[in-house]
């Protein structure tokens, strides 16, 4: 174990698919023992980057090292130390959960009896003991995600890649996976997590890189990213949705700020430089006869960070929740 080497270090990483730059000049640095969040919308290049780091794809340019080992020239040494979980690296649906884990344990060098022991241990831990003898194709979404994670922990990896571990899961299952990730991090495993849920990166990751169209557009702790946006945000929730266009007009005219209409037809938000201005905004709304149900002023959310960094909101169904 060379504890000094960072878990992941890339420089100028490029991967082209035809003329598309799926990964475009990416530099990453992930210290050993941390949770790294790779945040971006669908198709931003997150999975491609992970596939390169896990030795499944060769980069077209640049270098990538995992614990100091080059992912192309020393692929086998990298494979020895990483675990991989994602829609693209999954288990055999025709086999049972137990058979899958025994298979992988055998491939990692366990004897048949030790493989069975390790498989049962993992099934037990991931609350899959009862489902162990059923084919994986009968599993629910949450169970499926847990068996996928279990499969990458047959031998404890030093670095675990989790590709969108909670996409499509309900909140209960999502919390369960978060719980597992925190447990792994507490055990000292470096976790490299991709997500399109801003909330998830905020919750789990020590550091976050935001990727869009193959490029890293920001990197830092969740706090640093929020600070980069440089101002707070006023959220207003109206009582009557019909009043929202009027509210938008009042704020834009009186304060000269840009107003963002939220998904909820009662809500709007605006980047506002100080609490004093926020108070003024509320006064203007009251004077215009618009009833405000509730409001808040605070640090920007990661959603807003993304908006600021890319100039457009995250596309699609990326918001887990907005409160």
């Amino acid at each position: 174990m060379n504890a000094q080497s960072p878990a992941v270090e890339t420089s100028g990483l490029v991967k082209l698919f035809g003329s598309t730059r799926a990964v475009d000049n990416v530099d990453l640095f992930v210290p050993s023992g941390t949770v790294f969040g790779f945040l971006g919308p669908n198709g931003a290049g997150k999975t491609t980057a992970i596939r390169i780091l896990a030795t499944l794809l060769r980069p077209d340019r640049g270098t990538a090292k995992v614990f100091g080992h080059d992912v192309v020239r020393e692929a086998d040494k990298v494979r020895w130390r990483v675990g991989l979980t994602g829609q693209f690296a999954s288990v055999d649906e025709d086999l049972t959960g137990l058979e899958n884990l025994v298979l992988l344990a055998r491939l990692r060098g366990y004897s048949w009896s030790d493989a069975k022991g390790r498989a049962s241990e993992l099934l037990e831990f991931f609350d899959l003991a009862d489902a162990g003898r059923r084919q994986v194709k009968t599993y629910s979404g949450g169970m499926r995600r847990r068996i996928d994670i279990a499969a990458s922990l047959v031998v404890t990896p030093d670095l675990l890649f989790l590709d969108e571990p909670t996409t499509g899961l309900d909140p209960r299952n999502r919390n369960q996976i978060w719980d597992i990730v925190r447990g792994l991090a507490a055990d000292g495993i470096t976790v490299f997590l991709t997500t399109q849920y801003l909330d998830e990166a905020d919750q789990l990751a020590d550091r976050i890189a935001v990727i869009n169209h193959g490029r890293i557009i920001a990197e830092g702790t969740s706090g640093e990213l929020k600070a980069r946006v440089g101002s707070g945000t006023l959220h207003v929730r109206l009582v009557n949705p019909d009043a929202r266009p009027e509210a938008e007009r009042v704020l834009e005219q009186q304060l000269g700020v840009r107003v963002q209409l939220e998904y909820d037809p009662l809500e709007l938000s605006s980047r506002i430089s100080s609490p004093e201005v926020a108070t003024q905004a509320l006064v203007h709304l009251a004077q215009a006869g618009i009833t405000v149900g509730s409001y808040s002023y605070g640090q920007p959310s990661l959603d807003e960070v993304f908006l600021t960094l890319t100039g457009h909101p995250v596309d699609g169904e990326t918001e887990l929740e907005q409160s």
Binding site: E121, L122, F125, L153, T156, N175, W178, D179, I180, R182, G183, L184, A186, D187, I189, D199, D202, Q203, T233, H235, S296, G298, S301, L302, E321, S323
Partner: peptide, 19 residues
């Protein structure tokens, strides 16, 4: 705004009895 994180009770379940 982000909701406050509800930290689950058993955060440190050990998966990895062996290295």
């Amino acid at each position: 705004m982000q909701t406050t994180c509800e930290r689950p009770h058993q955060t440190e379940r050990r998966v990895l009895p062996t290295r």
